[in-house]
Amino acid sequence: MTPGSNLPLTVARVAVDVTAPVRLDVSGLLLTADGKVRSDDDFVFYNQPNGPGVTHGAGAGGGGDAITVDTAAVPPDIDKIVVTASLDGPGATFAGTEPTATVRGADDGAVIATFTPPQLGAETALVVVEVYRRGGAWKVRAVGQGYANGLSGIATDFGVSVEEPAAPVAAPAAPIAPPAAPPVTQAPPPTGPAAQVPPPMPTTPPSTGKINLDKGRVSLQKNQTVSLVKGGRPVLSSVKMGLGWEPAFRGADIDLDASVIAFGVDRKKIDVCFFGKLAILNGAIQHSGDNLTGEGGGDDESITVHLGGLPSEVTGLVFTVNSFSGQKFTDVAKAYCRLVDAQTDEELVRFDITHAEPRTGVMMAKLIKQFSGEWEMTAMGEYVDSRTVRGMAKPAGKAL
């Protein structure tokens, strides 16, 4: 699954396993239509493993923890169950860690879906997936929303009462000189489910650990991600992805083909825009046409995407370049892609490929629609042996 995508559940009992290379604390919260728990009893975790229709336990094969949801037993006033994961180690973040949620039938173990939140950074806790009602049926949605203040940030966001430790009480100072530092008596620790949750940090907006456009034009390195928002709000309705290259050897012609593959739920290909199909999705994506030589300044080919005109089922776009004639990318110099505001022609994001491989295809960048509705661009630079975009669909889907 990709962020924001959803799938219908075909079984009444599902288990959501969350695994990672490091130890995680996995929890489930039962939320009403206003996005809050009814009481602390709706917070299901290792120290309170049973809630109405929801249980906490070991994942399949003993790997990680799992939240099991019996949809038939969930109270009617509960709208959704969110499954969260937080890091067990003090000060640890999800940077370099890829937690994976696997949704299974709780009775037969059959895999329904998997989801790995992309490009994590400074997050210390995540809402990974949610199981929710829609039109009398149950569905699962990939979320991947990050929090910088741990499980307590999630808990307080959803209405769980988190007790803060009482302030230390100072004992009376000794009455006779020489003065001495007064001893301190610590308050007793809190009890109950809230005692297992760390106290909340000072109020700050949740951090995604990603770059945004607040400081202007962004130059990406491979695997870096930029959120296409400024001042907390999406800033673009139409963008143009410009792709360029030059021959590595003077006098040579380089005929490369730029394309974009549109993906939907569960990484399924919806359509492809390339030199042989210059407009797709009712004109929401348009190609500039084929450049046969790679000569000249500026972008060799460009693809315009009207984000607001994309069908709702489109959640991911992967931009590729292929060498139909069979020339390898070691014969190409100065390959790059850049994201431009299609309204103003202002360059917003640029990615220069600094490493070439003797292959005939490269995935340049991807745009992913987030659960919140905003889009993010990630620099890829991943090479593939394929002379046409047709051979790029499978590796591109895996890369989402």
Rank of each mutant, 00 (worst) to 15 (best):
D41G: 12
V229C: 06
G294N: 01
T378H: 01
V18K: 01
F319H: 08
G289Y: 06
V37W: 00
F324T: 07
A173D: 11
A365G: 02
N282P: 08
N6F: 15
T315E: 13
E163G: 12
I270Y: 04
G309D: 15
G251L: 03
T204H: 12
R387F: 05
P311D: 00
G53V: 03
G397L: 03
K394E: 15
S227F: 08
P175R: 05
V140W: 10
S207T: 14
T304R: 10
I270G: 04
R38A: 12
Q343P: 02
A122S: 14
V140F: 10
S27R: 10
L256S: 01
T360P: 05
T19A: 12
G61W: 00
W245G: 01
K334R: 13
V14Q: 07
T100F: 02
V54L: 05
D271I: 11
P199Q: 09
T225S: 05
V74I: 11
A187K: 12
G373W: 04
G91N: 06
L243I: 15
S5A: 13
T19W: 04
L256P: 04
T293M: 06
G144H: 00
N322W: 02
G296N: 03
P311F: 05
G57W: 08
G91W: 11
P198K: 01
G297H: 03
G231Q: 06
A113E: 10
G381R: 03
A181I: 12
A170I: 11
V14K: 07
T344N: 04
A60D: 10
Q224I: 07
A113I: 00
I78M: 08
T185R: 15
G159D: 00
K210T: 15
E346N: 11
Q370T: 13
G96R: 04
A106R: 07
G231F: 01
D108I: 05
F94Q: 00
L213W: 02
T55Q: 05
E347M: 09
F371C: 09
G309A: 13
F249W: 13
G264A: 02
F371E: 14
M241H: 03
F371K: 14
V11K: 09
I254V: 13
I353A: 05
G316R: 00
R13V: 07
G64E: 07
